[in-house]
Nucleic acid binder design. Structure first.
Length: 425
RNA sequence: GCUGAGGUAGUCUAGCGGUAAGGCGCAGGCCUGGAAAGCCUGUGGUGCGAAAGUGCCUCGGGGGUUCAAUUCCCCCCCUCAGCGCCA
């Protein structure tokens, strides 16, 4: 969420950002937030004065009693105060919660380098890496291939868990683990600490890290408990340090989250998305960084480079796109996607999402950093996150790009050490 | 799930109707050739103010009693210990 102090000080920045996003509804909120916030502070001044008076009278009553003086007039004034205070508090509380509700829904301020555009068709390609292979036979779609080879069982998963779930078996179960292990080892060499987080978190922590509108659409709620299945390890890892203050020397903090991810919404189905591409559950290794505001743009590039290194090493052709204003969502100030070449569809498809959330999550989570030489100064930190590998989508890419005519699939050499040195699935 | 003990500022600990005391840590200052030690000041949130300042809030959370609640009453949450169940 945006810091109310930021909105007060920079209303024009907030307005022009919402114009860039073409969001007239939220644009109208800005003035309402500002006027309600002003009224709220005005009320606070009044109420604080009433409280001050009450405190003074209480002390005077105490002293008068000790001195054996009459207190009836003091008691009369004191009796009139609580109701006024209560009324003011009620009004202020109502205003404050409205302001907060708007603030929670106002999006992050976009970086200037974010391209303007209506939707994902207007994302800007930044570069292409690798050359798509040409096939002299007809590719099987990845789900069919996996099922035929006994590497996955979609039908039985549907029977016991519903559509969008899968059993991974044999080679693909091992490939899932190999991909995770490969990504973890690569990130560990770059200073990331592997972290396996809780797979459920409570509502208030969730509100700190995600877009509120995602709640009903995306998250699975555990019935009867204040618990949600995580949609990505980004969420518990972000919430991990809520209400804490970092020392500058402890930043940047680089963590590699390892977890299954659970998502209710999986969107449309088609032959190519059916198997492993759009699913309710998948494994992911995630890069997450807490850093100072000065470092975040440099680290954003670093996270992208790490993710690219993984796909390059796997030998998968990909391109990088700069996500445009119409597609970026509320939390990120800037987002890159890596899309990998899917030869059956003849298209690049999303496999990595790399975001600089600047202070947006930190404000909600109340995470700050204190400089060593300036004890008084506390600033909100910046958070960043990027996929390292989402195994379901990477497996689809491998099943398509490295498929042979006889239905075998070549294991990328970098994964073989994690697959008992096998060359084929 | 049961029983018991707890929840006080970054942390540890006191206070048990009169408006949060102290230790440690941390930051700044004094002292010093430099350091340590010692001493002094500060240490959460929020508002008003150009500033100097100044006010309000904060004792797990929410209600209640009272002129006044960390303290008394009610409800809830969490942590720890023991027991039970258990991969």
């Amino acid at each position: 969420m945006l810091d109310i102090r930021f909105v007060r000080a920079n209303p024009d920045t907030v307005r022009s950002d919402l114009q860039k996003r073409n969001d007239p509804k939220k644009l109208a909120w800005v003035d309402e937030v500002l006027s309600k916030d002003a009224r709220s502070r005005e009320l606070k001044v009044q109420t604080d004065e009433l409280r001050r008076r009450r405190n003074v009278i209480s002390r005077e009553i105490n002293e008068a009693r000790k001195a054996g003086k009459d207190t009836t007039s003091l008691l009369a004034e004191a009796a009139s105060l609580p109701q006024k205070i209560k009324d003011n508090d009620a009004e202020q509380e109502e205003i404050a919660s409205t302001v907060r509700a708007y603030l929670m829904r106002l999006p992050n301020i976009l970086d200037e380098s974010v391209p303007q555009g209506k939707d994902d068709n207007e994302n800007v390609e930044l570069k292409r890496v690798g050359t798509p292979r040409t096939f002299d036979f007809e590719l099987k779609n990845h789900g069919q291939l996996a099922a035929e080879n006994g590497w996955a069982d979609f039908e039985r998963a549907t029977k016991c868990s519903g559509a969008g779930f899968y059993f991974l078996k044999g080679s693909l179960a091992l490939l899932d683990l190999a991909l995770q292990r490969f990504a973890i080892d690569l990130l560990a060499k770059k200073g990331f600490t592997p972290v396996i987080p809780p797979f459920m978190i409570n509502r208030s922590s969730y509100e700190g890290v995600t877009d509120l509108d995602d709640f009903e659409k995306v998250m699975y709620k555990i019935d009867g408990d204040d618990a949600y299945l995580i949609a990505t390890s980004e969420h518990p890892i972000g919430a991990m340090y809520q209400d804490e203050i970092f020392e500058e020397k402890d930043l940047p903090l680089r963590l590699a989250g390892i977890s299954p991810c659970f998502r209710r919404e999986i969107g449309s189905h088609g032959l190519d998305t059916k198997g492993l591409f759009r699913v309710h559950q998948f494994s992911k290794v995630e890069q997450f960084v807490f850093c100072t505001p000065e470092d975040s743009w440099k680290i954003h590039e670093e996270l992208l480079a790490n993710a690219e290194e993984i796909f390059m090493a796997l030998g998968l052709p990909y391109h990088v796109v700069n996500i445009c204003t119409g597609d970026i969502g509320t939390v990120a100030a800037k987002k890159y996607d890596i899309e990998v070449w899917m030869p059956r569809e003849n298209a690049y498809k999303e496999v990595v999402s790399c975001s600089n959330c600047t202070a947006y999550q930190a404000v909600r989570l109340n995470i700050k950093v204190r400089a060593k030489d300036d004890f008084e100064s506390k600033r909100y930190i910046h958070t960043l996150n990027s996929t390292a590998i989402a195994t379901s989508r990477a497996m689809r890419a491998i099943l398509e790009n490295f498929q042979e005519k006889d239905g075998t699939v070549v294991i990328p050499p970098v994964l073989r050490q994690y697959m008992n040195d096998r060359e084929l699935l």
